Computed example of a mutant assay.
Amino acid sequence: MPTPRDRRARLAAFAVFFVQGLTFATLLTQVAALQKKHGLSDGELSILLLVVPVIAGAGSVLAGEIAKRYGSRVVLRVAQPLAGLAVVLAGLAAGVPELVAANVLFGLCLGAVDAGMNMQAVTIERRYGRAILTGFHALWSAAAVVGAVWASAAGGMGLGLPATFAVAMIAGVAIAVLAGPALCAPEEEHVRPAEAESRTPAPAGGGFPWRPILPLCLAMAFLYVGDASISNFGSVYMDKIMHGSAAVVPLALGAYQATTFVVRAGGDLAVRRYGPAAIVRVGGALAALGFAGIVAAPNEPLAIVAFGVTGVGLSVVAPQSFSAAGRLDPAGTGVAIARVNMFNYVGFIVGAALVGGIADAANYQVAFAAPLVLAAAIILLARGFQPSRSLPAPRPSEA
């Protein structure tokens, strides 16, 4: 049974995931407003947006190195408030150079927090001794919805970008600062060498091998190719292919986000019953089916349903990738999780370029065939998610 200390750490990690979702959505929902404020062309905006995942990949690697020595708690206590500050600076930016600088800081902190919060979640899952990681990602999704609702309300009140960003980020940073001390400390996160060796043999040469985590990295990249295609081009598809009205166009992304949250909210129960490999295999199949529906949809309602089915399938892959990476790193160094997280940004970059390029050459309906193929490939990668042993029993917690 989890101890009171484990429960406090879990609540703190929930807070971190919530703040990260809120931070991400607060900035993402105002991309069009930032473009208009700074007079950016579509090409300039694309380059500006690509800065974030590129720098985030570096932030994830840096977080892995820091966490290996000092634990992920210190990463989060520094990077998460700085991410909130970066969002506020983006709103205050008077020109493009200031906006780029804010984006660089945001990207670096985004990658560090993504890696650090999943290290915490994996540690807590290990201490609980059962699958609980998907619930953290469900809260991220819920917070993203809160961020979008706040952006809509702020727009209705006529608030400018600085005020819109500041209100959300003051609340977010306050939550992060309060939660920080309750996160798992390095001595709770890092397993003693003798204990780690009793769970899984140390890799030859002392380094962390790529081979066991490669299926997880590829699955993460393929997931985010699909996620990026929907996030970046779902509304464009509904406009140009389905010729939807202004009220209908946002429903593609809305259906995707809604099903992602619903499935993640109950995903841990399914993982405990059927195992992570089976859940990822079914997820890949459903995602492929959803993308096939997008490619073939004859009308708006079926297209919206297809986007929702895609959300059901893709929602399970990321949390199970991190959970599997944690099992492959019994010493709790965080290196495996940081590496897997890096492919989040690889997939996002590839997805934006691949789907956008195909759409330019053909159309957006044809372009969604690319993530269809990659989603189907997740089915073949699912074997890499199967644990070779059950999760260890939770260790006694330090007071």
Rank of each mutant, 00 (worst) to 15 (best):
P4D: 02
R5K: 15
R8H: 10
R10H: 02
A15H: 00
V16R: 01
G21A: 08
F24P: 08
A33D: 13
L34Q: 03
Q35M: 10
G43T: 04
L49F: 11
V54L: 14
S60P: 10
E65S: 14
K68C: 12
V75R: 05
A79S: 09
L82H: 01
A86T: 06
V87K: 07
L92K: 03
L105A: 06
L110P: 04
M119P: 12
R127G: 02
G135H: 04
F136H: 03
L139E: 09
L139V: 06
L139C: 07
G147P: 02
A148M: 11
G160Q: 08
T164C: 12
T164P: 11
M169E: 02
A171L: 14
C184E: 07
H190F: 12
V191F: 04
A202I: 10
W210Y: 15
L214Q: 10
P215A: 07
P215N: 10
L223E: 08
Y224L: 14
G226P: 08
A228M: 00
S229I: 04
I230V: 15
G234E: 11
Y237N: 02
A252K: 03
L253C: 11
V262Q: 08
G266H: 07
A270R: 09
G275Q: 00
I279V: 15
E300R: 06
L302T: 11
I304P: 01
S315W: 03
S315G: 13
D329G: 04
G332R: 00
A338C: 14
R339T: 14
V340H: 08
I349R: 05
G351C: 06
N363K: 01
L372C: 12
R389Y: 00
R395Q: 09
